[in-house]
């Protein structure tokens, strides 16, 4: 990526782990997954859980509206200047994987305007099971599926399910109503992902987003120590 290291101009930052002044830039975590699996709700819950201990911001990649950004604004999970919407021309997977230029500008502008930041959450609009984030854009990625989308999704696999750094099986409270077998989903996920972690989550339960927030904290600790 960095053919320009020998130049003195402003860095064409992408995966570079440091800011221009040499300090560590914010950790960038991507959240992807199918439509309606609860990505925005998870982002909102993470913001509420982490905003008092960390300086954070959010970039959304909507399919054809600013719906996700507006939900976060309405819920007032962060001040408006910490939320940026990227327009994707109907293709979130292009904007998060194949052509990440608009997203990189969004994260850099957030760092410039409201930074220094500890953490930036980059949310993809709902997409298909193959949509993953470029390593040039995020440092780690979360894939969010839900029990109501069919309990065979972990078995089907695909790059999101098998390679994401964290897999969230969301809306576990709905499992009895939609006939989804949670134990089977967990076992299939384990088989697909070997040692990579899986969180079974219900944002309506008492624990809510706690397990995911703990994983984010551990990622951040590793990032800061590196």
């Amino acid at each position: 990526m960095h053919l320009d290291h020998h130049h003195n101009g402003p860095a064409a930052v992408s995966a570079d782990a440091h800011r221009k002044d040499g300090s560590h830039r914010a950790l960038r975590i991507g959240l992807g997954g199918p439509v309606g699996s609860g990505k925005t709700a998870t982002v909102a819950a993470l913001c509420r859980a982490l905003r008092d201990e960390l300086s954070l911001a959010v970039v959304t990649n909507d399919i054809y509206t600013r719906e996700d950004a507006e939900f976060l604004l309405r819920e007032a999970v962060l001040p408006p200047e910490r939320i940026t919407a990227v327009e994707t021309g109907a293709c979130p997977h292009t904007a998060i994987r194949d052509d990440i230029s608009a997203n990189l500008e969004a994260v850099e502008d957030l760092e410039d305007e409201v930074g220094p930041l500890d953490l930036i959450l980059v949310e993809s609009g709902g997409d298909n099971l193959t949509a993953t984030f470029s390593k040039g854009l995020v440092d780690a990625q979360i894939f969010v599926i839900d029990v109501a989308g069919g309990d065979d999704i972990p078995r089907k696999g695909g790059p999101g399910v098998t390679t994401a750094d964290l897999l969230i099986v969301n809306k576990t409270d709905l499992a009895p109503y939609v006939g989804s077998d949670l134990a089977r989903m967990a076992a299939d996920a384990k088989a697909q992902r070997a040692e990579l972690p899986v969180v079974l989550q219900s944002l309506r339960s008492e624990t809510g987003v706690a397990d995911t927030a703990a994983w984010v904290r551990s990622q951040l600790a590793a990032w800061t120590a590196a």
């Binding site: 021309g89 194949d98 230029s101």
Partner: peptide, 11 residues
């Protein structure tokens, strides 16, 4: 058209 410079989001 796949040159990664943002054109995909514009009509």
């Amino acid at each position: 058209g796949r040159f990664p410079a943002g054109g995909h989001a514009h009509s």
